[in-house]
């Protein structure tokens, strides 16, 4: 089935309130909600790439630097995200170990790789599986903020284990890098416009004899 697209019909939908307008009549702002009217998110690919690359770079220190220092009776232990997962697993809470592993290691990595895939295919004008790529985008939007889990855990442990020399948890530099990765990947996926996946689609269809 061929469904008409707004850009071909001269229609424009307001991103904020969903109102449908004729593109020519209302040039700049939505008459109902005053949000700027745009066919596509501005500079979507460039912004998304910039944010994504920064996130990818910070992903390295986020995983290598310790996120926590545990001081217990003169014995200092540095833990990274991965060693925290291993510790949970060894203590027998394999269910939470899996949750933390997925939220802190798998989700950020999957987000970075998948968003790069979406950007590359949108940029090269690929016509491959547009429906699945749009669904992938929706999954990325949904899982984005769950990676904040480890940041909150560090903040909580720092506050709860605050017993001076006896036992003390301090935050490491890794947690700042990790927090930045989560925020940057969220911003990167917000800047990406999934309609770009479909723009190439119709261009190709039109070009076909």
């Amino acid at each position: 089935m061929n469904v008409p697209r707004a850009c071909d019909l001269g229609l424009i939908g307001c991103d904020a309130c969903g109102k449908v307008l004729q593109a020519r009549q209302h040039a700049e702002h939505c008459p109902r909600c005053d949000a700027p009217l745009r066919r596509r998110k501005p500079d979507s690919l460039v912004r998304s790439w910039a944010l994504l690359l920064s996130a990818a770079i910070l992903y390295v220190p986020a995983n290598l630097l310790p996120i926590m220092h545990t001081v217990q009776l003169l014995n200092v232990e540095h833990s990274t995200i991965l060693s925290g997962v291993v510790l949970l697993w060894k203590n027998g809470s394999w269910d939470l170990a899996i949750i933390v592993f997925v939220a802190s290691i798998v989700v950020p990595l999957v987000k970075i790789v998948c968003l790069a895939l979406l950007l590359l295919t949108a940029q090269s004008g690929s016509t491959w599986a547009p429906r699945e790529r749009t669904q992938l985008y929706r999954v990325l939007e949904f899982i984005g903020h769950w990676s904040m889990l480890d940041v909150f855990v560090v903040a909580l442990l720092m506050t709860l284990v605050h017993f001076g020399k006896f036992a003390q948890v301090e935050a490491g530099a890794g947690v700042v890098a990790f927090c930045a990765v989560v925020v940057l990947t969220m911003l990167a996926s917000m800047s990406f416009d999934p309609r770009l996946i479909w723009d190439q689609q119709t261009d190709r269809d039109a070009a076909r004899p």
């Binding site: 229609l11 004729q22 985008y137």
Partner: peptide, 16 residues
């Protein structure tokens, strides 16, 4: 053209 009965898909720009 009356546009109030239309809805545009946020993710792919299709009009219904």
């Amino acid at each position: 053209m009356d546009t109030t009965a239309l809805v545009i898909c946020e993710h792919c720009d299709s009009v219904y």
